[in-house]
């Protein structure tokens, strides 16, 4: 017979062992695809640069207002790996600082968009065929019909262009993707037998939505979040490029590309280096997203 001691034991060991094996299995599936490991390495490296910029960057003070006319437009060399810009600031340091903004934008946007979109999708999907579902999905369609960049431009034109406002601007239309994703998953998951059996038991709608259905959507949502990080950062950079992003002197990748564009082809590094940085981030998140998808899929 199980006494209290036994119970405590089996709880501890079984839970730990299960979690550990699950993690190992997840890593095994993830690492089967080498490119996704590359993606993970890129993302982790970029994240480290963003977090530890003040200590890692060769010239941390170059990120703000700084002028050094002695070293203007210096091509990539030993002292300045990515060269310097028109007022002598080290581009590498500025890129590393801009990573911060890019990550804040991506994470902040997802933090706003995902909970809202997911809840909307759950409600609409579970009540498919009823007026509430139709209402949510038509609103979604309206937002979807406006290209996110144009929407963001409008919002930024009305409000002051800052990081927070561009974050808002991107979020306004981005939630619809999560709503759609979760909607389609929920509308099929609600026919699963385990949902039916919870309904027959008499469980509340909230229980069914958040305890039975939602955990089964996590995989797809998480995959999409990883992929979206790249896209949101790209959209943010586009806003910056047209001058609607973070304002100088705070470095942002899009603004840096735009500023350097007038020096092309002579001083190509001013523009190309931040552009490459954008590319690497987006690439990193995309590769990582593929790996996450493989990891969370059930097949082996």
């Amino acid at each position: 017979m199980a006494n209290a001691n036994d119970k405590a034991n089996c709880q501890g060991t079984v839970v730990k062992r299960d979690k550990f094996i699950q993690l190992k299995r997840a890593w095994y599936k993830f690492s089967l695809n080498k490119t996704s490991v590359i993606g993970l390495v890129i993302v982790v490296a970029v994240a480290i640069c963003a977090i530890f910029q003040p200590w890692l960057a060769p010239y941390p003070h170059h990120a703000g207002e700084f002028v050094d006319f002695a070293n203007v437009n210096c091509p990539p060399c030993k002292e300045h790996w990515c060269g310097t810009d028109g007022v002598g600031r080290d581009i590498l340091s500025r890129i590393m600082y801009a990573f911060r903004g890019a990550f804040t934008l991506g994470l902040g946007c997802l933090a706003l968009v995902v909970p809202f979109g997911v809840v909307m999708g759950l409600i609409a999907g579970y009540h498919k065929g009823q007026w509430i579902s139709t209402f949510i999905m038509r609103v979604t369609d309206v937002f979807l019909s406006i290209p996110p960049l144009i929407m963001a431009l409008c919002v930024c034109a009305i409000l002051r262009p800052t990081l927070f406002n561009s974050l808002l601007a991107v979020s306004v239309s981005w939630w619809t993707w999560y709503c759609r994703l979760v909607y389609s998953m929920t509308s099929s998951l609600r026919n699963e037998m385990y949902v039916k059996s919870a309904e027959l038991t008499g469980a509340s709608t909230a229980h069914i939505l958040f305890r039975e259905i939602l955990p089964n959507c996590f995989g797809a949502v998480f995959t999409k979040m990883t992929l979206d990080m790249g896209w949101i950062i790209l959209t943010g950079a586009s806003l910056g490029f047209v001058g609607m992003g973070e304002q100088p002197p705070i470095p942002s990748l899009g603004t840096m590309v735009a500023d350097g564009a007038k020096y092309i082809p002579g001083q190509w590094w001013i523009s190309i280096c931040p552009a490459l940085a954008i590319m690497i981030i987006v690439l990193g998140f995309n590769l990582l997203g593929d790996g996450v998808k493989d990891m969370l899929s059930s097949e082996e």
């Binding site: 037998m193 385990y194 949902v195 059996s197 919870a198 305890r211 039975e212 955990p215 089964n216 996590f218």
Partner: peptide, 8 residues
């Protein structure tokens, strides 16, 4: 396989 929620 289908009547037990795999996530619970």
């Amino acid at each position: 396989g289908t009547t037990l929620n795999p996530q619970r």
